[in-house]
Design a protein around this nucleic acid. Structure first.
Lengths: 230, 230
DNA sequence: ATAAAAATTGTCTAAAAAACACTTATTTAA
DNA sequence: TTAAATAAGTGTTTTTTAGACAATTTTTAT
């Protein structure tokens, strides 16, 4: 029956690096742990993989507990498995990153947890190897977004081109030429211009766009080269 | 002390998708299991992560047991965690892929295991979800090699340009224009022409090249676009 | 009416990719 | 020795894409 009886079983966790955008800057959703060990320390949201769950399911559950969100863009990133990464007991952690439009769920953040959006540029010291996870996630996000249109997952359903520009500039910490960016973006065929404008951020107002979901599904896995020399 | 006492521990394994090239076609290193369960079935090489090991260490150990090889190009791919993927007992598997020059190690394959190089186009039914792992690895290899010069890991120290061309054509199952490919390859500055020629494959003979290790380290993570519309 | 602020639009230049075919070196067979 | 066969090696033109660069439009506030 149990053919693997001599093997050691290990704790398996998931940790979620949750990126959010509020129209101005990129942020990470962090929690202040309300319990020992490492009480009051800042941390990524995580949890253990339960017997009936896939790691993906576990990550989705963890995300839902914290944010109330389901069906969010989430991708498996990397396994962190240093034997001593968790000082309490050896735990292998599968890291996921998620992309969220902050405004859409501002009031849904579970009050059970002390969760907070923190600017990506001001991340505090986190527990265990979580800072390293965040660095890896930033790198992976930059890599992926340079080639695939995933950053739209951070925006509301209707968005403007200046908003996307700000987002890309934030993710890569660069300044882009808006004329060239505009042309490149529209040439993908991903965007559909709406008739109304966003008048909140300028006098003239900027046209809203929506994603063309058909084209989006096709192009999510093709190479689009949004960023020069990524 | 044990703060996580209520959590379930799981078996954690590594499985290696080992790609090899012999100058003609891409192959995978598979083993025929010599023990139950699934005795005599074809399988990837795998093993359990031991208490003192990182998953990377475990994957390297497994690779060494099978091939005698160390310091091989190996990359973490993806976690496979379906609760029922292993019918004996729940096991989470971290999949790695490795790239090897077949000829270099032809005679080193451990006789302890019944290992065999099988053409990538004729992979038999494998145990568990190993066929799915292979598919994911093929996809990942294609993705990565389209942008980064990793396929050199499949070639001997000295190689010819026609050999590389064959390799790329094999990986992507396409025909490339040798003039354009040649120019693109040489323009990377990755190759150093040797004075001698390989006279085995043609009358005229093809110049040997070696990797410029300095340039290689710099460019392994930059985007090179070897393949049109990958 | 005018100034201010941000959105929108277009052209020209440079670089990279793609299409395309002939020449060279060598061996082998007539 | 000469000719045929084989694969390696090399250049040019065209097309496409990326990059640099500035003026105009729309609306609100003074």
């Amino acid at each position: 029956m149990t053919k693997y009886s001599k093997q050691t079983r290990l704790l398996v966790a998931v940790d979620c690096i949750i990126f959010g955008f509020d129209g101005e800057s990129l942020k990470l959703l962090l929690i202040q742990r309300g319990f020992e060990p490492e009480k009051n320390k800042w941390s990524l949201m995580g949890g253990f993989v339960e017997p009936s769950e896939t790691p993906e399911t576990a990550a989705a559950r963890v995300l839902k507990q914290l944010t109330g969100l389901e069906h969010v863009y989430m991708e498996q990133m990397e396994v962190f498995g240093e034997p001593n990464r968790d000082p309490i007991e050896r735990t292998i952690s599968i890291a996921y990153y998620a992309l969220i439009d902050i405004r859409k769920y501002k009031d849904q953040l579970s009050k059970e947890y002390r969760a907070e959006w923190m600017p990506l540029k001001e991340i505090p010291k986190l527990i265990f190897d979580h800072n390293s996870m965040v660095e890896h996630a930033k790198k992976k996000l930059r890599y992926k977004a340079a080639l695939h249109p995933i950053l739209f997952e951070l925006l509301p359903e209707k968005f403007t081109i200046p908003q996307i520009l700000t987002l890309y500039e934030g993710v890569y910490d660069i300044v882009l030429d808006k004329r060239n960016f505009n042309r490149k973006l529209l040439s993908t065929g991903l965007l559909v211009r709406q008739k109304d404008k966003d008048k909140e951020n300028s006098k003239k107002g900027a046209f809203y766009y929506k994603l063309n979901k058909e084209t989006y599904k096709d192009k999510i896995s093709s190479f689009l080269n949004f960023i020069p020399n990524p």
